[in-house]
Amino acid sequence: MANIMIRQAENGGLSFYLPKRDLEASIESIEFDTPEKWGGELKLDNGGSYYIDPIAKPPRLPISLRAKRLGAAED
């Protein structure tokens, strides 16, 4: 488990930040994106993927969450 931060990117998408490794990436897809259920698997543009427990859609970004790593980015 790692702390991550999700924020609104300037281009309208979501961006992913992993402070521990100073890793920045944009989120290509998010599994659930409805007002009641938001989260699930995050696919990153660097090839990595993370899982966050689905929550109600946060009213305001950025938000810090705990995430599980599913697949590491190829290095």
């Binding site: 931060m5 924020r7 938000i63």
Partner: peptide
């Protein structure tokens, strides 16, 4: 950027 991110999240 670290402190700016923090202020964005905590203080909007």
């Amino acid at each position: 950027n670290y402190i700016s991110r923090h202020m964005e999240e905590k203080y909007g």
